[in-house]
Nucleic acid binder design. Structure first.
Ligand SMILES: [Mn+2]
Ligand SMILES: [Mn+2]
Ligand SMILES: [Mn+2]
Ligand SMILES: [Mn+2]
Lengths: 220, 220
DNA sequence: CCATAAAGTTTGAGTCGTCAAACTTTAGTT
DNA sequence: AACTAAAGTTTGACGACTCAAACTTTATGG
């Protein structure tokens, strides 16, 4: 069984690989994500490589092996099911559940996880719109494109918020933007550095390009 | 914040102190409970003493300080609320939830614990009848006496099962004996080494003295 | 009151996960 | 091609937790 620490590294590597265009995770970003120094990250990567969970050519990027990917998806599944439970059953705040799930994800047995999943009605996404990997390890990725990519006049439905930062999530929720919410693209600035939305039965919101790029949507 | 390991030791010390007539925990029993060698237990006790969580005169028994007791009751509260959730909401088996709670108890924030408690309707006991300490650290102990102490003809109500062992719990459940179940003491053997109960609207069960001493009941 | 077993302690060593700081490699300027 | 900053690695050290095995103290029952 992978330790809590190992699970955290593996999950972080998975997420970073998804994010980077090269499909590889860098040591510095990994260290930052896990909250350790880069030296520590290097030595952990070595151990992960020894246990065949990652491939890590010297002085180059880290990628997961099939085994590593299996673990990552497993942890991600637990994480997202827990987040769903915390929001939909315990009514915890959208912005707070990530940290909580960060700890709980390491303490659930497969059986309990399945019961929880059943109790929740086998949800396919978590409260942020992140897809929940199936028990067998399949995920649907990229269910929308960045808000910043839509043109004026587009009628969109928010699909996914791709950031776990509390302050950002608070801001997004404040604006009324949650998965399943519909909105009209009211304006896109000439330089493309901001976008204004009118939320259906809600207010208008202006987002910076960087904020808009972290919110995925699709045409209604 | 106390580590997971420290929480486990402290909780075990609390339980052992409750069990022993002297009110002190022995090193060998503690080691056994936590699952380490006695040398390991000794060195942990030293560290706990240094952080003022226990009092441990050399070559003598261990007791909790006020600080230690606070932590113990806190962990116990988490443990029992989680057990209640696992049984009453997720329908997990009575006999399985202890191990699961053993891990989850270290991963719940106070806020989430309170939401869970609220969701469950602020239960006062867990599925085994163990009292749940209040958030401020109060517990009702000894809400019944051992089944073995009742006389023939007594009409009793099961209150609490004082053992977490899976096999024992399976056996007890098999017999239909759960907290709140009522039964008649049908017979007590002359030597007092066994007791026969007739469970209300159920079958008759004969328990050994040692089994009966781990089941608490009170007169109906 | 003493021998012996049980309880408790000490010692030396190992793993895991971490840091700071020195070092090496890589990649992007000029 | 040479310089430099960023990325990555190595080294030495440490704390938390553990074990096995040798050792000491305590209890007790003959
Ligand atoms: Mn985590
Ligand atoms: Mn999420
Ligand atoms: Mn535990
Ligand atoms: Mn219990």
């Amino acid at each position: 069984m992978a330790s809590e620490t190992v699970e955290n590294y593996i999950k972080a590597i998975y997420v970073l690989c998804r994010e980077s265009p090269s499909g590889e995770a860098g040591v510095v970003r990994l260290a930052q994500e896990v909250g350790v120094t880069k030296g520590t990250a290097t030595s952990m990567i070595k151990r992960l490589a020894k246990s065949k969970l990652v491939k890590a050519p010297r002085y180059s990027g880290v990628t997961l092996t099939a085994m590593g990917k299996k673990i990552a998806l497993d942890v991600l599944r637990r994480h997202r099911i827990i987040e769903t439970f915390l929001v939909s059953t315990l009514n915890l705040d959208w912005a707070d559940v990530h940290e909580e799930a960060e700890r709980l994800e390491h303490a659930l047995s497969p059986r309990t996880l399945d019961r929880l999943d059943e109790f929740l009605g086998r949800p396919s996404t978590d409260p942020h719109g992140d897809p929940i990997p199936s028990a067998s390890g399949k995920v649907l990725e990229l269910r929308g494109k960045a808000l910043s990519a839509f043109a004026r006049g587009a009628k969109v439905e928010i699909v996914q918020i791709m950031d776990q930062d509390r302050a950002f999530l608070k801001f997004v929720a404040q604006s009324g933007l949650k998965p399943r919410v519909r909105a009209l693209v009211q304006d896109v600035s000439a330089q493309g550095d901001s976008i204004t939305l009118r939320v259906t039965r809600g207010k208008s919101v202006t987002l910076s390009r960087s904020a808009a790029s972290k919110i995925l949507a699709r045409l209604q």
